[in-house]
């Protein structure tokens, strides 16, 4: 069998070969201009509807202006962790170290201590998550036998200027609330000290 030329640029019928119409540019240029100007006029009309006639449904652009508006997030989105509280406000976590063990990035650090209630085995004295290392795999959530850690705050804005500020401690994580409708965070973003204005 001869060397296969079918559907390669060597094939005379291949789409990369220019026909007479393409070689003459003018028609093809006009086709292209028709397409782009159609987008222009349709979008201008939608912008006009939106601005002049206050239409809610008309959208002249697909842009989501991020800090001002967020796209709806899936409820399954893995965002900043939080520690679930008991009714008395203490962490539900029993410091079993499952999450620390399963964590592939070794970003969880737990120090256990006795719980005053004898029916509860332990309680974390320290529960630090280094978000600089976290890979957001969600294994800690899966591993937790007490449903004490979740990643449903909807918060994604935890950038910082130094590594120390990426470490989130127990009190911060305990204070967070689950996200609301469309993944909009309900608790304020815990801004690290390095990002606070001087």
């Amino acid at each position: 069998m001869a060397y296969q030329t079918e559907n390669t640029p060597a094939d005379p019928r291949h789409s990369s070969r220019l026909g007479l119409r393409q070689r003459f540019y003018v028609v093809e240029v006009l086709v292209g201009l028709a397409l782009t100007s159609q987008h222009f006029f349709v979008n201008m009309w939608r912008h006009t509807l939106k601005v002049v006639f206050r239409s809610k449904s008309a959208r002249g652009a697909v842009t989501i202006q991020y800090p001002d508006e967020r796209r709806p997030y899936s409820p399954r989105l893995r965002s900043l962790h939080r520690l679930v509280r008991r009714e008395d406000g203490s962490p539900r976590c029993v410091a079993c170290m499952m999450c620390e063990t399963v964590c592939p990035a070794h970003c969880i650090y737990i120090v256990a201590t006795e719980h005053p209630n004898p029916e509860i085995e332990k309680v974390p004295e320290r529960f630090d998550i280094d978000l600089g290392k976290c890979v957001f795999c969600g294994f800690c959530v899966e591993a937790c036998p007490e449903d004490a850690i979740r990643m449903d705050t909807g918060i994604l804005e935890f950038a910082a200027y130094d590594r120390a500020s990426m470490v989130y401690t127990k009190d911060t994580l305990l204070a967070l609330e689950p996200a609301g409708v469309d993944g909009v965070p309900t608790s304020p973003v815990p801004i690290p000290p390095s990002r606070r204005p001087a």
Partner: peptide, 10 residues
Amino acid sequence: KQSAIMQDRI
């Protein structure tokens, strides 16, 4: 602006 409107951007 014109390029943005042609490309469905703002």
